[in-house]
Design a protein around this nucleic acid. Structure first.
Lengths: 225, 225
DNA sequence: CCTACCGATCGGTAGG
DNA sequence: CCTACCGATCGGTAGG
């Protein structure tokens, strides 16, 4: 379920330890998401796993470390989605479309992690908060750079690319608030629809939606390296 | 500072009580925003005001009621911004522009209230949560309706107005995360820029930004009732 | 990694 | 509306 970002464990001992960590995180994600971080005791997390609190402390130094791991994964998934596209070839429009699709997917697949980070940032240690916020800033900077490329290439028309990046990031991030996996939109429909809104926001050519009189460029598929 | 939504007090006694409530709320907003709801004791709120805890309990039945009042005001301000425009005359484009400007202003002026609601919803009582969520739903419904009007009038071009409303709502709501009153954008610049993004998202004609070949409609000022 | 516990915090209230 | 307090919760750990 969760995206493991830790280095691959070497022996059986490490594998077991990693498994226990993963399982603890998975249970904590559910409980923190449903009840909130402060309303969830580590006793409750342990009980849900059929163990006791010292089991958790064998793998995490504190409750705040568990929270930091969850928050990190949420942001990391979005950053990885962005990074995975930036190395591709393709026009800025094509790459921004791909970023939209993957970014939305990352947010929706890690909905609970993202929600927990948004809600619980005040419960992170100062060091963890700084580190994770840095990832958020990195995301914004890279997105601004892509938008700048599009403007340079004459494909995007935006007054301020920093503002547009904040707008895009916000629109997509906010999806954690309202998206329901069994709701009226599937993940794919949501990704497609929000991506269309992103492209339109930056004034990219949208052949399928353009009013008569604008000639859209031909739409090449992004080549993946 | 805060927008009073309570009925006007009649006598001096009620006025004093209202003042104490307002002052308590103002202090709580600051502390809840900076440290988080659960990390802020009512002793701390009282201390900040130079009183003791029973002072607060004389005006609020519980800590959760104080939280509910703060959250309500955040959402109410956004809803009022929307409602204030819906009664106006003017084209859907003109009204959506006005909604954008006022909605952004409401979010930024109530940044801390909105942040607190976003973060602390798990600490609201079930009844308060339901009531406040209802306001959020009402906001979405009314925005969808405005977008539908625009589509009907041929001014907006969106595939799904519900999705577009969620996108707009998210983009603007998220501004509470990144906006800084002494940052690189003033409130007015932010409102103008985000409103431009909204209009572009729905495919409204934007004379000042339109590529050659599209003829923008003449831009009439919205008349206020 | 379990049992058992400590120490601190804090929402809420009795009594005046 | 203050002083003083209670009762419950819970993060973290000692000891085995």
């Amino acid at each position: 379920m969760s995206t493991a970002t830790a280095a691959a464990p070497r022996g059986i001992r490490d594998e077991v330890a990693a498994l226990k960590r993963e399982r603890t995180i998975a249970v904590a994600v559910d409980l923190f998401y449903d009840r909130g971080y402060e309303n969830t005791s580590l006793d409750a997390v342990a009980e849900q796993m059929g163990v006791t609190k010292p089991f958790i402390y064998a793998h995490f130094s504190s409750k705040a470390e568990l929270l930091a791991e969850i928050c990190s994964r949420g942001i990391a998934s979005a950053l990885e989605a962005l990074d995975s596209v930036l190395g591709m070839s393709g026009s800025p429009t094509e790459r921004l479309r791909e970023v939209g699709l993957r970014f939305v997917s990352a947010v929706l697949q890690n909905q609970r992690h993202i929600a927990i980070f948004s809600r619980e940032e005040k419960n992170l240690t100062a060091a963890d908060y700084t580190r994770i916020s840095e990832m958020r800033r990195e995301f914004d900077h890279k997105l601004v750079k892509l938008l700048d490329e599009g403007v340079m290439a004459g494909e995007f028309h935006v007054t301020d690319t920093r503002m547009a990046a904040l707008g895009i990031g916000g629109m997509i991030s906010w999806a954690y608030v309202w998206y329901r996996s069994h709701g009226r939109f599937t993940l794919e429909q949501t990704a497609d629809a929000l991506t269309e809104l992103i492209l339109r926001m930056v004034g990219a050519d949208l052949p399928e939606q353009a009013p008569a009189g604008i000639s859209g460029k031909s739409r090449k598929k992004v080549s993946k390296p």
